[in-house]
Amino acid sequence: MGGAHINGCGVHAATFLLLAKECCAKVDEFTLQSSLKQFYRFAGRGNVAYGDQLPEKSFVDNGKTGALAFTMAAAASLTPEGEKSIYAKARDISAVKSFYSTSWLNHGHTGGGVGEIWRGASMGLMMDKKPTKHREFMDNRQWFYDISRRFDGSFGIVGGGHRYDKELWGTGMVLFYTVPRKTLRMTGAPKTKYSKHYQLPKRPWGTAADEAFYKLDPISGSALTSKDVDAEKLATHGSWPVYRLLMDPKVSDKVLLDYAHHPDHGIRRYTVDAIYKHKRDKLILTLLKSKDPRARQAGTMAIYGTFKSKPMGADRLTGEMIKLLTDMITDPDESWWVVYNAMMSLNVCDAKTIEPHVDRLVYWLEHDEWWLSGG
């Protein structure tokens, strides 16, 4: 895989290392910490990439983001802070993404069946915290699970083709039945006498501002409320129906602003694609001015372009926008994810505009975090 990693496998290897550490197995410290950091960075910022790349911005992920929820669950069970840790928050934002990505049934490289395994399993982690979403997910997937069950009680993954309609894969898919029972440590089972805590970094990547990307509540600044988000239905709020709504040229500024403040990164990405397409540039300015890093990052995406969309022309970038972007890259407390995206947006500008900020850009180019030095 380009970038040397194959994260569809690697994310599970990281989970194994964390669980092994809790069992007091001898685990190489460098491997443990570097693997934790590698995958922690993806939570709340898009999909786990295929290789050693930045987060992907589509909703098709072959189960890597659902699997990430279990990696973060293992980290939360290992570290002494437990449910109060940043890993528990990273777990939840990764798990609930399965609700929105469920529009893409059996979709993805290899046929998508592996995505159904981890999408359903990770949604089971949200039964208590997001009961309406969990129930909606299960009720709307019942037909799929029912026809995947064979006459003898075994499971395949129906519609997955020759590759996935086998017991080998079907057995994995039925985790959606068992995860809510919390019989495993990574699904919420209590500690045993063999479980040992181990102090993980309080924050393995980024600044305090980066923790905003794990919030399940919408961003303040629009009419969207937590109650609205909790009441979402798949037929109207899965990724496909939201995409169709946003891409309608007649969509209102209010609807665009609401979805730009949505807690799911992918929904925000769809929204800024629509804002760019419909040339509602005043909304970009609103986002860039937000006090919430999630909104500021959404504003930058509208400028530099996202999945399969081109960057905004320099003629649409105003002086006020440029000032806000340069403020982001010079603020030492700014979210690293926002900084990266702000630098991507500044690529739209000509050399004369960027020249006064060369020193700060060089600072980031020399940073030991490649997500930033590569910006």
Rank of each mutant, 00 (worst) to 15 (best):
C9S: 07
C9F: 11
A14D: 05
A20L: 11
E22F: 00
A25N: 10
V27K: 02
F30L: 01
S34W: 02
K37L: 06
K37G: 01
Q38K: 08
R41N: 03
R41S: 04
F42C: 03
G51S: 12
Q53R: 09
Q53L: 05
S58E: 13
A69W: 14
M72I: 07
A76E: 05
T79F: 00
E81H: 07
G82Y: 13
E83F: 03
E83T: 09
R91S: 15
A95P: 08
A95V: 08
Y100L: 06
S101D: 12
S101W: 02
T102H: 11
W104D: 11
E116L: 10
I117R: 00
R119N: 15
A121G: 01
L125K: 00
M127C: 02
T132D: 15
R135N: 14
D139F: 05
R141I: 07
I147M: 10
G160C: 07
R163S: 08
R163H: 14
R163C: 06
M173S: 02
L175W: 08
F176Q: 08
G188S: 08
A189L: 07
H197T: 06
W205S: 06
A208Y: 04
A208Q: 09
D210P: 02
D210G: 02
L216P: 03
A223L: 11
L224N: 07
A231T: 06
A231L: 09
E232R: 12
L234M: 13
T236L: 14
P241T: 15
V242E: 15
R244G: 11
M247F: 13
V255E: 15
V255G: 08
Y259N: 11
H261M: 10
V272D: 09
A274G: 09
H278A: 09
H278L: 14
L283M: 06
A295L: 04
A295S: 07
A302E: 03
I303L: 09
A314K: 12
A314I: 10
D315A: 10
D315N: 09
R316H: 15
G319M: 04
T330H: 14
D333Y: 06
Y340V: 06
M343W: 03
V348N: 01
V358K: 15
D359F: 04
Y363V: 03
L365F: 14
H367W: 01
D368Q: 14
S373L: 05
